[in-house]
C-alpha cells in the first residue's frame, strides 16, 4: 500500500517477489527505486552508469543463492562471477574489478567452499577480471542454506558507447546469442532430482563475445537473459522503448533436450533462466555483421535473428510456429525459484 512517502510494499514478501518477473518489478519500482531515488538508479539497467571525472563507469551487484550449489555446467562460484561480469558487459562496459562477499552457514564443508572458490577463480580468469576485495560472514546453522555469495563489479564504458533500450528504433532486429532455457531447466532438474539426463547450464562469461559483437557493428542495446527469461527481458525492452516487439517462435533456438524437458515439466523455455545468453538489438544495416561476430565466438555459435522492433506500443507478441499470434507477457508468479 502506498504510504505517506509514496513507498509501496506488499504486506508479506512471497517467493514470487524474487522471481525476476512482474512482482519483482513492482517491488523494485515501488520500494527500492523510490526510496533510493537517483538518476543512475532510475534507469533500472543491469548495471548503473556513473561518471568519474572524464570516464564513465558501470557498477553492478548481485546475490547468489542457487540451490543446489553445484549443478551440471556450473556452480554457485562460476555463477557469481559470470552473472556480474555479464551485467557489466551488456552495458558495453569492460570489467575492471569484482568484489565477493561470502555468507557461510555454520558447519559448511570446507572442501565444497574451496571448490566454489576455485570455480570463481577460473571464471574470473576467463573473463579477464580480478576479484580484488571481499567479506566473510559465518551465520548460525539454519540461518543460511550452506553458502550464499554476493558479488559486485565495476567496469569502464569506452567513450562513445551508449547502450539503452531507449535507443531502439522501429525496424531494428533482435538477435539471440544461443539456445534458451538450458540453465533454468538444468538447475531445476538437479534440485528436484528429476533424473533427466543431458541437461547442462549455459553459465558463461559473455564479455569477450559481446565485445566482439560491439566491434563488428552498431548495437542499440543488449541484455543478458537471466531470471524471467527472454520473455521478461523483451517486455522490459518494449516498455522502456515504448515500442512493440515481435518474436518468431520458429526462430527461437532451444536445444532438443531442453525442449523435451520443458514439455515434460510444463515449463516454457521463453521464461526459463539463462546465465550465458544475451539478446541484442541492432539496426538492419549492422545485424549481419553483429551476427557473424557472435557466431565466431564459442558462446555465440547458436546465435540467430529471432524478431524485430515494430512501431509504437510497448507490448511483445509471439508469431507462433503454426502461423498464429499471441501476447508474450512478463513472467507472472514464480516459474523457478532460486536458480541463480
Amino acid at each position: 500500500m502506498p504510504g505517506k512517502n509514496g513507498l509501496k510494499v506488499p504486506a508479506k514478501i512471497s517467493l514470487a517477489y524474487g522471481s525476476g518477473g512482474r512482482l519483482t518489478h513492482e517491488l523494485v519500482s515501488g520500494l527500492f527505486a523510490r526510496a533510493f531515488a537517483n538518476k543512475a538508479l532510475a534507469e533500472l539497467a543491469d548495471a548503473a552508469e556513473i561518471q568519474a571525472g572524464r570516464e564513465r563507469l558501470a557498477f553492478t551487484t548481485d546475490g547468489y543463492v542457487v540451490s543446489p550449489l553445484f549443478f551440471p555446467g556450473g556452480d554457485i562460484g562460476k555463477l557469481a562471477v559470470c552473472g556480474t561480469v555479464n551485467d557489466l558487459a551488456v552495458k558495453g562496459a569492460r570489467p575492471l574489478a569484482l568484489s565477493a562477499s561470502f555468507i557461510i552457514e555454520e558447519g559448511f564443508d570446507g572442501e565444497l567452499l574451496k571448490k566454489a572458490v576455485l570455480s570463481m577463480k577460473a571464471a574470473a580468469a576467463e573473463a579477464g577480471v580480478d576479484i580484488v576485495t571481499g567479506d566473510t560472514k559465518v551465520v548460525d546453522k539454519g540461518k543460511a542454506d550452506g553458502l550464499f555469495i554476493s558479488t559486485a563489479g565495476v567496469g569502464l564504458i569506452p567513450a562513445g558507447r551508449k547502450l539503452a533500450f531507449a535507443n531502439l528504433r522501429s525496424g531494428d532486429e533482435l538477435i539471440i546469442s544461443g539456445p534458451l532455457g538450458d540453465h533454468g531447466v538444468a538447475v531445476m532438474n538437479a534440485r528436484n532430482n528429476l533424473g533427466l539426463s543431458g541437461l547442462k547450464s549455459d553459465c558463461a562469461p559473455l564479455n569477450a563475445m559481446l565485445e566482439k559483437a560491439l566491434a563488428a557493428g552498431a548495437v542499440r542495446a543488449m541484455r543478458d537473459l537471466t531470471r524471467g527469461g527472454l520473455a521478461t527481458s523483451l517486455n522490459e525492452a518494449a516498455s522502456a522503448a515504448g515500442l512493440s516487439i515481435e518474436l518468431d517462435e520458429e526462430k527461437v533456438p532451444v536445444s532438443p533436450v531442453t525442449a523435451n524437458a520443458c514439455a515434460l515439466l510444463g515449463l516454457d523455455p521463453l521464461y526459463s533462466a539463462n546465465e550465458g545468453r544475451a539478446m541484442l538489438f541492432c539496426p538492419p544495416s549492422s545485424s549481419a555483421k553483429v551476427l557473424r561476430a557472435l557466431r565466431s565466438h564459442r558462446y555465440g555459435r547458436g546465435a540467430v535473428r529471432a524478431g524485430r522492433v515494430l512501431g509504437r506500443g510497448g507490448d511483445v507478441s509471439l508469431r507462433t510456429a503454426v502461423g498464429g499470434s499471441r501476447l508474450l507477457r512478463m513472467l507472472e508468479g514464480e516459474q523457478l525459484p532460486r536458480i541463480c
Binding site: 528436484n192 533424473g195 520458429e250 510456429a321 503454426v322 502461423g323
Partner: peptide, 28 residues
C-alpha cells in the same frame, strides 16, 4: 527424496506437429 535413475529423453518430435507449411494447408 529418492534419486530417480537417469531417464533418457526421447528424440524431439515436436517440430513434426508444428510444421508451418502443413499448418497453412490445414488452416486453408
Amino acid at each position: 527424496m529418492k534419486k530417480a535413475s537417469g531417464l533418457k529423453l526421447p528424440a524431439d518430435t515436436a517440430p513434426l506437429f508444428r510444421d508451418r507449411a502443413l499448418a497453412a494447408r490445414m488452416v486453408a
